[in-house]
Write a protein that binds this DNA or RNA. Structure first.
Lengths: 159, 159
DNA sequence: TATTGTTATACTCTATAACTATA
DNA sequence: TATAGTTATAGAGTATAACAATA
């Protein structure tokens, strides 16, 4: 029996937390993350690893710094993350013209993994959109992007 | 000069990441979190500590377990979190009828802090809503709650 | 027996500084 | 001098197991 049933009608007052966009956004992100974990458990892959494979798929040959910057991952933390992908034979560091860097590539096994990722990702998107109509989902994208834009936007240099 | 300007028109392909609700949601949550950190720095308080104070404000006398459950914090992790609030004189553990537990309360200093929190919180909500109209903001609440509901909903026991 | 608060612990993420080899 | 990758490390946040006091 869940604790909720014990505290029957515990009706506790969340006050302004329920009116806080930040709080609701955090709850949504957390719920989505947990759903991700459940659905991707069989592939044994994290959201971050997933995003790296997806970026390399569309942009082969990028350097570690380019991929890190694109995904908001610190270069230092990217190393171990990519080591994991390389150890599993999903991606590799190929030599680049600039000998300080690597050209990141997928392996055949990585491409096979991506086909599975695409499938699970589609199912995941459908799952987390269960409470939304198609129009709702489209609108949610628009609103989230509208929210993000002014916050991520680099400081425009006034002159 | 930001890195973006250096890699002028680097136009790299995010592929399905841009069509992933999970990814966009994560970016939004991250942007909002960073804005929170900046604006609440002067109060030296985390989102979690903030939410605890807000819950106790509206529901004085709750136990640690009740507050933890309400906010999705593990009981074990709540201890240090509340120790911090108590050390700063913002909240306290009062004795309860059940001597295993405490009735959590605000102190006068905690109530004073909450007035500041309310003010900064209002400013924060306005800041993160900068890219949204009032109607947009209301719609975003509706959509996020619609997304969350089926994911958080405990497994309904069919019978 | 079960529950509350607690401690200890571990694992993941994230952030910073400093090193190396190349440029 | 500056940059790419790397290492080491430290700090959050979060997870589980086990214990003492109390119910």
């Amino acid at each position: 029996m869940p604790a909720v049933a014990l505290q029957l009608e515990n009706e506790l007052d969340y006050g302004r937390l329920d009116q806080s966009l930040g709080y609701v956004l955090r709850r949504a992100q957390l719920a989505v993350f947990k759903t991700f974990q459940t659905m991707f458990r069989a592939l044994d892959i994290t959201p971050a690893q997933c995003s790296v494979l997806l970026i390399i798929e569309k942009n082969p040959g990028l350097t570690q710094t380019q991929v890190s910057d694109a995904l908001g991952i610190k270069r230092a933390n990217f190393v171990a993350l990519f080591d994991g992908l390389e150890a599993r034979g999903l991606a590799q560091r190929a030599s680049a013209s600039d000998r300080r860097s690597y050209a990141l590539q997928l392996t055949p096994r990585g491409r096979a993994m991506l086909r599975k990722i695409h499938a699970v990702s589609d199912a995941h998107e459908e799952k987390i959109s269960a409470g939304l109509t198609q129009a709702d989902r489209h609108e949610l994208f628009r609103l989230l992007n509208a929210l993000i834009a002014p916050l991520e936007e680099p400081v425009a240099d006034a002159e």
